[in-house]
Design a protein around this nucleic acid. Structure first.
Lengths: 202, 202
DNA sequence: AAATAGTTTAACCAAATGGTTAAATTTCAA
DNA sequence: TTGAAATTTAACCATTTGGTTAAACTATTT
């Protein structure tokens, strides 16, 4: 059986607590408990809450961004690319259901820091423009429509996770099974919707 | 000139602070400052932070829900209804840009309380089912597709506000003017996209 | 004028919380 | 075996924060 290093145990625990409660709501004691250690040891590895928080945030972001970049750079028609991204995004969210909320919180808490980090990770205006140019040549899609499509894609994929507690209660009789079924269907629905949007816009 | 009551001044101030920072991040002192009064007087009107928070949350929600219910009950074809809702949602978000984030936070913090409140306000499963049945007869849309459409609509309208700080930086050279222009176009884009989706699904 | 409600000032309290410290104990590699 | 690194225990500290209190002052109403 694989046994984690203490540092990894801490990061995993912090991930759980920070993502659920945010920077303000999280308690160092709670993270220590979750990791199965004590507060002194926690501070032995991470001097401050901020340092630990950054480690968690950047780790999660790196994982997400790298996956997306790989997909975007893949050589396939734009439509297929969109579908791939939707699919990847969706599995990722499925594995980290509280992630969207966490990132939204971060976007609004310290956008500059987050934006800089993304640039460091290779997700900057240039790389996005590259995609945009591909779209222009490949699909004949107007450049003005690209941001709309891009943001739509994110909204369509992410909303079911952001609002799950409410949607499940109000639209699915608070049945987790039915909501899971809904999520499973969703990938195709979104892909179809985006395909239509592209075809209409070109 | 119209002069607000102190209680209203407090609620307005609390709205600003709570919506920006959430329940955990907000400070009573900050709210008092924002309202131009002192902490003692703040507690004179609202015994606890929780009480004040509830007043703000419920006030905002009531306003939002009532507006939507009126629109949904209006007697017009489903397509037009959708467009109306998108349009109304959008102006509301425009006037309260931090609201989506606030509500998302609440949905995940205390979903039961929020769900119950919505039921009290007349937005329950029954009223949603009523709409659903109208859709069935009017539009020939399959009931299974309704939740997808509904959640899509919310995601499409709300995402530009949830992610604005990041999107503006990454897609619009951090130009507020260009983002405003983008938001102005958005209403039509979303309406068009949803219309397509309905036509395809029926 | 007198009473009442609204408001300020300023000090205070208790609890929670991030962080520290030091000594003792365990683990483990050189 | 020995010495360094990892871990625990447990007490402690400073700060922040929600909330209280009491006395004084001001505006408003009766």
């Amino acid at each position: 059986m694989y046994s984690e290093s203490t540092k990894d145990k801490i990061i995993d625990a912090a991930k759980i607590v920070f993502i659920r409660k945010g920077m303000d709501g999280a308690r160092m004691q709670e993270i220590a408990d979750e990791a199965g250690i004590n507060k002194a040891l926690l501070h032995y590895y991470f001097h401050s809450k901020q340092e630990l928080f950054n480690a968690v945030l950047y780790g999660v972001l790196r994982q997400m961004i790298q996956g997306l970049i790989v997909l975007f750079k893949k050589d396939e028609p734009f439509e297929d690319k969109l579908v791939s991204v939707v699919s990847q995004y969706d599995t990722f969210m499925n594995q980290n259901p509280y992630l969207p909320q966490f990132i939204v919180r971060e976007i609004n808490r310290d956008p500059d820091q987050l934006s800089d980090f993304m640039t460091d990770q290779g997700l900057d205006l240039n790389s996005i423009r590259m995609i945009l140019e591909n779209v222009e040549t490949e699909g004949g899609l107007s450049p003005a429509a690209f941001p709309h499509l891009f943001i739509s894609m994110i909204g369509l994929v992410v909303m079911p996770y952001l609002g799950r507690p409410l949607f499940q209660r109000k639209l699915f009789d608070n049945s987790p099974e039915r909501y899971e079924r809904f999520l499973a269907e969703r990938k195709d629905f979104v892909a179809q919707l985006l395909r239509n949007a592209i075809r209409t816009k070109r």
